[in-house]
Structure formats: C-alpha cells, structure tokens
Design a protein around this nucleic acid. Structure first.
Length: 485
DNA sequence: TTAGGGTTAG
C-alpha cells in the first residue's frame, strides 16, 4: 500500500507515524490546500480504507477544477472491488468522476472499471464500459471474460473468448486462468478436447499460476486424481500451488493426505503463508487429533506468522473440535481484535460441548462489545440452548429477534433453520403443544426437514393421528426424507 | 497504473 505524507509548517506526518485523525487535523488546518496536500489526504483515506471520504475529497477536488490522476481512480476502484456488491453505488460514483475527467475511453482505467463492475455483480455496467473502450487490449478481453465466468454466465464467457480471437487478440495465461474459474458443476470446458489441446500446446501449462488454476478446477470439478496428476508434474510449485493441493485433499475428506502434502511442502523448503495455515488448521480440526493439532500450532509459532484474527480463528476452531475448550478459550481471550466470526466459533464450541451457560455469557459479551449477532450466532446459540434444555432462553431469543426494533438483532431475523432449532429444543423438552403454537405463528411454510425434526424429536409423544398428519407433510414436501423417490 | 491461481463459522 502506498504511504502518504503531509507537510505542515515544517512538520512531516506520514502514514507510518500518524493516525488518520492527525492527518485530517493537519489537512483541515491548511489555509490554502495545495494539490500535493489534497493528494496526500486522498492517499491517507485510501491507506485507512475510508472509501467514501476519499471519494468525497476527489469530488470536491474536481468541483474546484483540479485534475485527478488516473492512479487515484484505479486505487478507488480497487477498494470498491474488495468490498464486492455492496460497493456498487460507490463504483458508479467513481465512474461518474472518470467520465467528468474525460477518461472514459482510457484503456487502463476502463479495464479496472470492467473488473470492478464484475465484482460488484453489475454485468450491464461492465458490458457498457467494455463497449466504450475503443482500443481494447488483451487485459480488456480477459477482464470481460472474468466478469462473465465469475458471475456464472459461462456461455457468454466462452463466447467472449472466441470473439477476442476473431479480432486478432491472442489469449495469454491469464485468459485461461479466467476461463478455469469454473463453477464446480460446470466442468464441460475442462474435459473438452480442444481446450485440453490448446492448454497443453500453448506452452502456458508450464506456468505455475495456470497449472495451479487447473489443479483447483479439477478438484472443484470432482476429479481429485486429475488434480493430483497436474500437481505431480508441476516443475516449481509455489505456496499457492501447495495450498491448493492441501485444500483439494481436504475437500475430498482425505485429511491425512492433506497433512502429508503440508509436511512435504515443509520438507521441500516451502514457506506456508496465512492462507496455508488457515487451510491446514481446518484439516487439523477435521482430524480432531490433539497431537496433530499441537504440532500444527508449533508450526504456526515457528513460521512467525502473525497470529492475526483469521489464524486465531483457525486455532480456536481446531482446539475446540479436538475437545480442548479451555485452550480454545485461552486463545480467544488473547485475540486483540475479535471479529464476529471469532465470537461465533467460540459460541459454537461451547454449544458442541454442552456449555449453554458459557454460550449465553458470550452472547451477552458480544453485544457489550458493540457487535450485532448474525444468523450464525443465532444458530450456534440456539444449538447450545437445545443441548442444555434451555427452552425459555431459546424462545426468548427468537421471539425478541422478531419483535425487537432497537436494531440489536439487525441482520439476524430468524430463518427456517432457527425455527428448526426451536422445534428441536421444544421436542427434546417434550413440549409438543408449544411446537404446534410456534408452527402456527411461523411467517413461512415449514420445510420437509423441519417436519421430520418434529417427527423424530416427538416420536414418543405423538398420537397416531398426529404422526400421520406430520408424515403426510414430509411426503408432500420432501419424499426422499422418508425413503420414497 | 489495468485482467488472473489457494482459505473463511453452522
């Protein structure tokens, strides 16, 4: 990330030595804000990820008749891209600024815009920018192919691939990587003879990035053997290739093999990064073996990887799954900045080990920390209640989620899955009447699975008529659950 | 300065 630097009365403030507030203070104190100061302030906003502030300042600069460099636009588009679909309004504002600056037909800026609109899931906007670029290069075409493939418009992606060749733009390694970003159900391309021939004869397959993308595509497409074949002939696997292979084995539930690949990577001098550790810690959690778990923890320490939130989450989850709740809690308590994910993992661990009181306390702490529970918090908490028979607590929580207007539950309105938990809680407590009451007030139709839950948890309490009534519902909604097809 | 390969709770 580019550093920023503001100079005021001989004092130099840079991103390494001051906070955003200090930089803002200096900037606001300047009587005549030079172009250099304004650019430094924009850089500061970008450095701290303040997209809307950076955008506002650029709009002001443009209104004052100052020219804005294309690099500023590209930096802002980068930020929009990383925020995904929620940043579409900001992306459009940046686009509007680009138009006012007369850079609409600039190939480099346009390429970045296409990609940004793709990440924001607005294909129409991406297509419009693509159409307006007069001098389309291979990056322009690759960006458009990626937009289609990422958004699951597979046919349009392949059609664009053909069109680029018709206008004599030749595909490069990135073109094939974009095409390989397949949905796991869309493996036709992988096994199409022409695609295989083009790949192997283009010479691109010797490129590590493309070979890695192939390993991933084969694995996601269901062929671990093909993924292994490609990996085995790779000349120079890098950290991403190793991690892809570990993840491939893990996705086929071959955790021992995944662990062996990790060891092989270390033996060959490969240096794991944060993503590798996140992947291998999940493998450790699946294995549920504390011995392997502790060894992995030692590797984390030996590799001096900063125990940031994502690694801590992996460690907490792994120790929890291995049954070492105290160790998980100890790591949880030492994480300096917990994300909601961290809280959810810890609440989930308590739920798995019958710690309903602990889950209840953590939920309280989570709110005290100013966080808003989401649907996963809700499921984990209800699961904890279910295991411990906390009927009233579970019902209170779900009912208050429905009626609460003070935003504390914002974003976590109960879904069918949560009602499944409630049915489970009441069923385990033998409270059939209350199940019927909950079902009658549901804002949506109960799924076959939910009815099946009722049937299984209340098996001993149901009259013959009630059981028949429920079975009829299951048969209508999901006959497979009853073994019919 | 632009496109692109690996991870993410239940």
């Amino acid at each position: 990330m580019r550093a920023f630097c503001l100079c005021y009365r001989g004092i130099t403030i840079s991103s390494q030595s001051c906070s955003l507030e200090e930089a803002q203070g200096v900037f606001n104190a300047l009587l005549a804000r030079s172009m250099v100061a304004a650019k430094a302030m924009v850089a500061a906003y970008i450095h701290y990820g303040c997209l809307s502030d950076a955008l506002q300042l650029l709009i002001r600069m443009q209104n004052e008749g100052r020219s804005i460099e294309s690099t500023n636009f590209i930096q802002l588009l980068d930020m929009c891209r990383s925020q995904g679909a929620s940043a579409l309004p900001e992306a459009r504002k940046v686009h509007s600024l680009i138009k006012s600056s007369g850079l609409t037909r600039n190939t480099v800026v346009g390429n970045s815009l296409i990609s940004t609109y793709g990440k924001c899931q607005s294909l129409a906007d991406a297509q419009q920018v693509f159409d307006e670029i007069l001098d389309k290069d291979v990056v322009t075409w690759n960006a458009m192919i990626a937009v289609y493939i990422e958004n699951d418009y597979w046919n349009e992606g392949v059609k664009t691939f053909y069109q680029m060749q018709q206008v004599a733009i030749f595909p490069n390694e990135v073109t094939f990587i974009c095409l390989l970003d397949l949905n796991s159900n869309r493996t036709e391309l992988l096994y199409t003879p022409w695609f295989q021939i083009v790949l192997w004869h283009s010479g691109f397959c010797s490129e590590t990035a493309l070979a890695t993308a192939l390993v991933n595509a084969y694995s996601k497409g269901g062929s671990l053997a093909s993924a292994c074949n490609i990996f085995d002939i790779m000349q120079d696997p890098n950290v991403i290739s190793w991690t892809t292979m570990i993840s491939s084995y893990s996705s086929f539930s071959q955790d021992i093999e995944a662990l062996q690949i990790f060891k092989q990577m270390l033996q060959q001098g490969g240096l794991p990064d944060t993503v590798t550790f996140m992947t291998i810690l999940n493998v450790g959690a699946s294995l549920g073996s504390i011995l392997e778990g502790k060894i992995l923890h030692v590797y984390v320490k030996l590799c001096h990887v900063e125990v940031e939130c994502s690694i801590a989450n992996g460690l907490i989850n792994m120790y929890g799954k291995c049954g070492f709740v105290d160790v998980a809690l100890d790591i949880f308590n030492r994480v300096s900045s917990c994300s909601l994910e961290t809280w959810n993992i810890m609440i989930g661990i308590h739920a798995q080990h019958g710690g309903a009181a602990e889950a209840h306390y953590l939920l309280w702490c989570l709110r005290q920390a100013g966080l808003v529970p989401d649907k996963i918090t809700l499921v984990n908490y209800l699961s904890a209640c279910s295991h411990a028979g906390y009927v009233e607590a579970a019902l209170d929580y779900v009912l208050s989620s429905c009626t609460d207007t003070c935003d504390i539950h914002q974003g976590a309105m109960p879904t069918l899955q949560h009602y499944d938990c409630i049915v489970d809680v009441l069923g385990r407590a033998g409270q059939l009447d209350r199940i019927q009451c909950v079902i009658s007030t549901l804002p949506f139709q109960l799924s076959g699975l939910s009815w099946m839950t009722v049937l299984s948890v209340c098996r001993d309490l149901l009259t013959e008529g009630q059981a028949e009534f429920i079975a009829k519902h299951v048969l209508e909604l999901d006959p497979l659950l009853l073994g019919f097809s």
